[in-house]
């Protein structure tokens, strides 16, 4: 198990090198001089040159890159913001907390509603209930999140004055962003839950449970549900990724000071250390989340325990051994 976790952490390295290299490359080809930007139009050419030296912008790109990565690895230093001069990490950490709250809430809303709807439509398959669930979840999947966001703002904030339109100065401010991101994920969970539930209910071991005289209710909740949750759990990692992506846009719409808004602002302000740091931190977090999700499968599916602990993904031999 420990070996598996270490291996997963090692996977982080190539991922992060890739992400940072791409963003770094972008920085070198985009027009505009960060030094000039920091100092403003009044600064003399001399001052700008001095600033460029200070920021290391006159070094070859590769040297800049190695210095940057070295700073992260040795000092946890993601550079300073061009805009405020503050360390990126200091600026991002509190925003990370805000984004994490929203993402977590959204994933929970999406997963709970989605799984419930999925179970219902599997148990009521081919009835009108099944169709209604399908239509509703399809609706939220096909309408872009920001449209849902604007509609929610129109209704809940502008017309009914139930919730603040933007900002998170009060806890009510969290509700709409969470809802928007969560609802857009409902369809995915519903579809996976429904199809895996239907598949599981047709398995031989469900028939075995019936042959024992078990009731349909217990069969659904004790035998089918846990098996049906395996693919749902597997989709959790990528769903969190989507929620973070959705959050980027929605944080701007709702004026939430999270990492998403920070990165978007950094892009418009050509604050490259901000963009780079934000993207890297999100990449690290996503990889860690996926790792945690993978490990948590073991809790649901005992078959994985043997494969993960033994290190390799060896399948049980198809051919049976002697009894």
């Amino acid at each position: 198990m420990l070996k598996y976790i270490l291996k997963r952490i090692l996977y982080l390295i190539p991922i992060l090198i890739g992400v940072s290299a791409i963003i770094f490359a972008l920085k070198t080809v985009t027009p505009g001089d960060p030094a000039r930007q920091i100092l403003g139009n009044d600064a003399t050419e001399e001052q700008v040159q001095e600033k460029r030296d200070e920021l290391g912008l006159n070094d070859p790109v590769l040297v800049q890159y190695v210095n940057y990565v070295g700073g992260i690895v040795t000092r946890g230093d993601f550079g300073d913001s061009y805009r405020t001069g503050e360390p990126i990490l200091t600026e991002i950490l509190p925003r990370l907390l805000t984004s994490a709250k929203i993402t977590l809430g959204a994933v929970m809303i999406g997963a709970i509603i989605g799984v419930l709807l999925g179970i219902i439509s599997a148990l009521k398959k081919y009835t009108w209930i099944d169709s209604v669930v399908l239509v509703i979840s399809m609706f939220f999947q096909s309408v872009p999140e920001f449209v849902v966001a604007l509609v929610l703002i129109m209704i809940l904030a502008v017309k009914l004055h139930l919730l603040p339109a933007t900002g998170i100065t009060t806890w009510q401010g969290y509700i709409m962003p969470m809802l928007c991101i969560g609802l857009s994920a409902v369809a995915g969970y519903t579809r996976i839950t429904r199809s895996s539930m239907l598949e599981v209910l047709g398995e031989d071991y469900i028939r075995t449970a019936r042959a024992k005289g078990q009731s349909e209710k217990n069969i659904t909740y004790h035998h089918a549900l846990r098996n049906a949750m395996i693919p749902v759990a597997q989709s959790l990692g990528s769903n969190i990724g989507n929620a973070i992506g959705g959050g980027m846009v929605l944080e701007t719409v709702f004026g939430v000071p999270g990492v998403g808004k920070y990165i978007v602002d950094a892009i418009t302000q050509r604050n490259y250390p901000g963009v780079l740091g934000g993207a890297l931190i999100i990449a690290i977090i996503l990889t860690l989340i996926n790792m945690i999700v993978d490990i948590s499968f073991v809790l649901i599916d005992p078959r994985l325990k043997t494969t993960i602990i033994s290190g390799g993904a060896k399948k049980m031999p198809k051919k049976m051994k002697a009894a």
Binding site: E203, D204, Y205, T208, A211, N227, I300, D301, P302
Partner: peptide
């Protein structure tokens, strides 16, 4: 009433033991 009969008065063994048992129990 049939649920009381199944498993108690009549039991059945199915063809394929590989899939007859719940993998997570």
């Amino acid at each position: 009433e049939m649920r009381k009969v199944r498993g108690k008065k009549i039991s059945m063994i199915f063809q394929d033991p590989m899939t007859a048992l719940n993998p997570v129990k």
